[in-house]
Design a protein around this nucleic acid. Sequence first.
DNA 1: TGCGATTATATCGTGTGCGATATAAATATG
DNA 2: CATATTTATATCGCACACGATATAATCGCA
Lengths: 145, 145
Amino acid sequence: MTRQTLPLDQQLCFALYSANHVMGRLYRPLLAKLGLTYPQYLVMLALWEKDNQPVGALGQALALETNTLTPLLKRMEGAGFLTRTRNPEDERSVSICLSEKGRALEVDAVDVGLCVSAAAGDDPGAIDLLREEIKALTERLKSAS
Amino acid sequence: MTRQTLPLDQQLCFALYSANHVMGRLYRPLLAKLGLTYPQYLVMLALWEKDNQPVGALGQALALETNTLTPLLKRMEGAGFLTRTRNPEDERSVSICLSEKGRALEVDAVDVGLCVSAAAGDDPGAIDLLREEIKALTERLKSAS
DNA sequence: TGCGATTATATCGTGTGCGATATAAATATG
DNA sequence: CATATTTATATCGCACACGATATAATCGCA
């Protein structure tokens, strides 16, 4: 019987934790030039992919609760990247739409993506494969919790 | 020229972000029984691996700054898991040592690790491989930033 | 020896994240 | 058609995480 925990460098959870941190640190200075934080950038990616989504749909796409999204979206509205408007057909729902400034930002964001891809590795096929393996892991973990 | 960003499901950064989130959600209820948060659990793993480390060494092991660690360690000291003592030979340095309660907790933490391993997949070899690929990615990202 | 530079931690302000709870609008049900 | 339930957001409190700055101890060098 092992009654000892594994060291950090053998922990899958710590590998993910560290990778996510380093990714954040790589993105931070690049996104700062655009006036975005990393979670805000994820929101923008979701909106560039599909504009005009209610808060709940964004939360589903990003796996975030409204208690995180509401203040985040308010800050982004304040910065002029998007608008928050009550849906006239259902006053409970708030529609999130890109502003002109928010739409225009996508051009600059492409360069950020390229920069990170270059840092991730010189073999795009390997990166694609790794990403899909990580997504498969995520699904296994999700179904277990 | 593509002047469009990739959708979320093709973003490596979002795959890591999501995997890390789901991992955190899987750990949360398990660690709550031990009275630990996820970052606190990482500190405990580091201390079970090597007790009596200065704050800076823990920060290096976990890739965290003192501005994160100091309050976190104070909370853990308050909860009785560890002690913070100034090093008599260098009064600038604070030594972090496991308490008896902290040391004893490792036995219970083993079960948490087993539970998460089971959720991650039924092929330990594949998980080991994935972990090493993620660590290699982390190194590439780190050297780029 | 004295004092500027370096080192180890701590503090402050802002921005996520999340559990718990609140609020208001829409829907279901008797 | 009135009210209980459900649904969509919002608010609150606490715990990370980090950039910037502060503080105190130690070191280095004239």
